[in-house]
Design a protein around this nucleic acid. Sequence first.
DNA 1: CCACTCACG
DNA 2: GACGTACGTGAGTGGC
Length: 925
Amino acid sequence: MPDPAKRPHLYLIDGSGYIFRAYHALPPISRGDGTPVGAVYGFSNMLFKLLQDLGDNDRPSHLAVIFDAGRTTFRNDIYPEYKAHRPPAPEDLIPQFPIIREAVEAFGVEAIEMQGYEADDLIATYATQARDKGWRVTIVSSDKDLMQLIDDNISMFDSMKSTRIGIDGVADKFGVGPDRVIDVQALAGDSADNVPGVPGIGVKTAAQLINEYGNLETLLDKAEEIKQPKRRQNLIDFAEQARVSKQLVTLAVDAPVETGLDAFAVRNPQAEKLLSFIDKQQFRSLRAKVLNHYGDTLEGSDPVTDVLVTPKEIEYQCVTTKDVLATWVEHIKKAGQVTIDTETTSLDPMLADLVGISLSIEPGKACYIPVGHVGESDDLLAEAPEQLSKDHVIQTLKPVLEDRSILKIAQNMKYDRTILARCGINVSPFDDTMLISYALDAGKHGHGMDELAGIHLDITPIPFKEIAGTGKNQITFDKVPLDKATTYAAEDADITGRLWRILKPRLAAEGATTVYETLERPLSSVLSAMEQEGVKVDTDTLRRLSNEFATGMASLETEIHELAGREFNIASPKQLGEILFDEMGLSGGKRSAKTGAYTTNAEVLEALAAEGHTLPAKVLEYRQFAKLKSTYTDALVAQVNPTTGRVHTSYHMAATTTGRLSSNDPNLQNIPIRTSAGRKIRQAFIPEAGNILLAADYSQIELRVLAHMADIDALKTAFSDGIDIHAMTASEVFGVPIDDMDPMVRRQAKAINFGIIYGISAFGLARQLGISRGDAQTYINAYFEKFPGIRAYMDTTIDFAKKHGYVETLFGRKCHIKALTEKNPMRRQFGERAAINAPIQGTAADILRRAMIRMPKALKEAGLEEVKMLLQVHDELVFELPETLRDKAETVIRETMEAACKPVLDLSVPLVVDCGFGANWDEAH
DNA sequence: CCACTCACG
DNA sequence: GACGTACGTGAGTGGC
């Protein structure tokens, strides 16, 4: 028996069943020449969907579609009336049969049929052959006649319902196991197939009788014993008819098939064949889907080599006439895909004005369509170059960019989507090379276009600086001359298209499709909407705070200078260090390894303050004010968008190793909360009048994920029972009762719990708690003694990481850890800790992503369109909503977040979401 | 442009 | 036995 994980898996598709389903599911469609192709279309889509949808575990290694060859089979020799009542195939279906066989061939799949045998017999024959060789078999059909074949290795799959039927499913349907299905059918008959059976007996009664007597022959032999007179008589009178019926329903497992199983090995379709078939039928959306799925892995298309992505010549065109633009649109429609890039006046998509759009369909060919260029001098109107109007270009491209059958490809589509959304275009569908790269290579390198171009294409794109200058002399893109702008912009679209051709096929090949399709791509538009929504800040409050902080800083500055005996720049760690440790002669001055400067961070200053020194304490105060003022109050006021009056952050989807988002310009994921002065800044985040803010955060999500991943019963039970997890840890590690726990002991346990998530070290824990390294080590030892499963989890994770170079989240996201291969033991241990942390932090991040992706639909379905998701802060989502919707919104939000793992992951601990609401973000906590 | 510091989870 | 450390971010400032 081959390795069960790797043994072949044969899929046998009931082609006739597929055809009839396709025919009835779709309205009549004809192609240009009048030939009806509705069923062909439905069939092709179903076949493609099956090839595309199956998860990694269920992927076929072998595949064939089985058809009926004609109306008469060996069963008509046994019973001429078999299937005699079947109406002929509908008139408009008949010409589609041969086209459907072409479709199967075009997809590179074997089509099997044989005169004298039904498709079911061929399926039975192949299924049995494969099973006997130790293969797994899936029969794709909903025909109950095939259920007799089901066993431990053969199952059925209903592709419309996406449900798999095994032995249990048969029992549900027939009331007996698969081995007695034919006995039941022999008794019950089948009016659709004109199988007579025994009168007065249906499936229910048949199952009851077979279960009682064991099988058909025994039942017929003992028919005299049946109590019910009518049933007894029928069983006696129609015994022979039952036997004939059994023959009719019994599938032949010995059909003399000629094609061997090996011929069914799955292979990628040949591009030319498949695309020409699709084009002949005029299936535009299918064309796009097929290209999207196979990328350039299609056999016979240029392989992914230099030939494909390195064009022989470069042809970049500046489009300034309607005719040329129309030609591009035609080419895009024909190709079914286009790479797009927008050029604007700002990196902030909420401030940026559209300047031009570049497009590319194939490597080496791209165009730039200027729409917002102005003159190079200040005399704007006089020197603006000739270009198409923005309005005309938008109206011309809108149908293409919104066409569901045309795939739009971009590098960081979220940016372009926001820009285009502001022009009234809703881009769909799309692929994003930045996100594909992230799904594949998170942690290996960055995912910006220039970096990817260097790595995958060995190209250094024209630096933006080269065309726009640097520093205060830098000009915006609308002032770049058209020739330079065209070279730069068209190159971006060209490179993005070439990157897509390299990266897209890797998704399927490296098992990253699910991460990309379920955690990356759908989030892009959700974030775009959140960014466009923005959040309101109370600028008056921020300005007032800024003044308060400035006043505080000024008086502290005087005091500090007096204490130091001279003036110096308090904000300079270098100068401060010299004052403290050289001039004032305080002890404990540690120099940093890199520059040799004294360390003056909060930890050091706090220690000095604790010794009774005033100056360090004042500096700490000063630093807090300085930080809050420069990073928050002043910066936030400056970030308010003049048009919307709100602050629009930008979420970076591909920044972290672990799958977390990051927020920038401004960063709204590090708004103060830990100190009262800091919380005043949070109070400046407010809703519009009549609205409230609602903050929903996952309670202890990372510890819950850890409890599940490491499978720690004590932790899981504590979470299920709603026990304070830090108190529980304290009770286990320090042997104290949970009730009336000393807050200091709980604090220590909390630090241990966080330490575990970070890949604990005695040094780190000691520093966090201000205890000796020896004591910290004692705590850690005690912890691992109580929770040995954690140690095991950590060891397993590090082993996996070292073997593969990456770790995985519960949702399959790969996080590559570079430092694991370091020779320097310190850096390598750093990698080991990162490897322990990444699956935990990453799984939590995946859960947040799932919740966010589902949130808009969940709100909409509850009639809560007015509830707007504004912010994400790693374990928290912030919403703005009319106060009247508070309770209903809270329910939907909580349910969506708590169920975010489902249905693909059944977490063994509950997820708990705490919701708060209020007139500002601080109150909402 | 890097180092340092510090805000958040 | 010596490395010199908690995990993941972004932003402001000083200083070379």
